[in-house]
Design a protein around this nucleic acid. Structure first.
Length: 271
DNA sequence: AGAGGTACCTGGCAGC
DNA sequence: TGCTGCCAGGTACCTC
């Protein structure tokens, strides 16, 4: 489910409710996420005060004096704030219960997400260490893209989706950004000019920013920290629009397969 | 080093 | 109604 806008929306949704609050109890109903939830999490996080909620790529970090909880929502995870005491449903794997009777509940049907604990710098954690730059930062620009693409022949769609190149841009927003940039998703990256790299970085920033403003994209099951859906799906130009007319030229939108993932594009507008 | 495939897991839906 | 197969927003890890 979540790409960067959804994770950012989740962070913004939960932060005001848990920042400065003390963890009273942690209930783990199922430790079997992508990586097993470590015992060190319960042992160390209980009794700690969350002093900051931050995001790195699609990872959500809960900072305390004792260490940092690292959360990834995978394909189907949600984090929401509820009143403590509400019955858990089938895929509600973890409750972090706070002093003020609020509960941060992690639900993840497909269990592709994770919940880890680190006592050292989270940026140096194995999972975060080699991530690419944040797409909305100045480090992510046409020169960066141009330099990294010269010796690669992979399709631009797969290049953009690689988190070691740039974080947070998943299947939906890659298709959308490539449409906005007018670039065919199958184009080998080393065939893209500096000028097109500029269009690409600009489009990625624009699509992500607009999606964050809309509270993310809810296709089936994304809800923010307060249980509300996102609205960006109403503005999708190509994603999920196979055979429907392109908003710009009326040509039917194509759906193809790239690296086992669906790609949507307009062959007329994207060259 | 880069590219491609596989694995993890469940739910929803189309088709029979 | 019920079964089967396919698809889904992610990404680490393996091999070539």
């Amino acid at each position: 489910m979540p790409e960067l806008p959804e994770v950012e929306t989740t962070c913004r949704g939960i932060a005001p409710h848990i920042t400065g609050k003390k963890v009273k109890q942690i209930i783990i109903r199922n430790t079997r996420l992508r990586y097993p939830i470590p015992e060190s999490l319960t042992n160390n996080l209980t009794g700690q005060t969350i002093h900051q909620v931050t995001r790195r790529g699609k990872y959500i970090l809960l900072h305390t004096d004792a260490g940092v909880a690292i959360i990834h929502l995978g394909m189907s995870g949600t984090l929401r704030i509820i009143e403590s005491g509400i019955d858990a449903e089938k895929h509600d794997h973890v409750d972090i219960i706070f002093d003020h009777k609020k509960c941060l509940r992690l639900r993840d049907p497909r269990r592709f997400g994770c919940l880890l604990w680190t006592q050292t710098d989270p940026q140096q954690h194995k999972l975060l260490k080699s991530l690419g730059p944040e797409p909305l930062s100045d480090d992510f620009n046409e020169n960066y893209i141009y330099k990294l693409t010269r010796k690669r022949s992979v399709a631009v769609k797969q290049f953009v989706m690689n988190s070691h190149i740039v974080v947070g841009v998943g299947n939906i927003y890659t298709s959308e950004a490539l449409f906005q940039a007018g670039i065919n998703p199958t184009r080998p990256v080393n065939k893209i000019s500096l000028k097109s790299c500029k269009k690409l970085s600009t489009a990625i920033k624009d699509v992500l920013s607009r999606a964050i403003t809309q509270g993310g994209t809810t296709l089936r099951d994304f809800y923010n920290g307060e249980g509300k859906p996102g609205y960006f799906q109403q503005q999708l130009s190509v994603y999920g629009r196979e055979s429907q007319p392109c908003h710009h030229c009326n040509t039917p939108i194509l759906k193809i397969q790239q690296g086992q993932r669906a790609t949507y594009y307009c062959k007329q507008c994207q060259r």
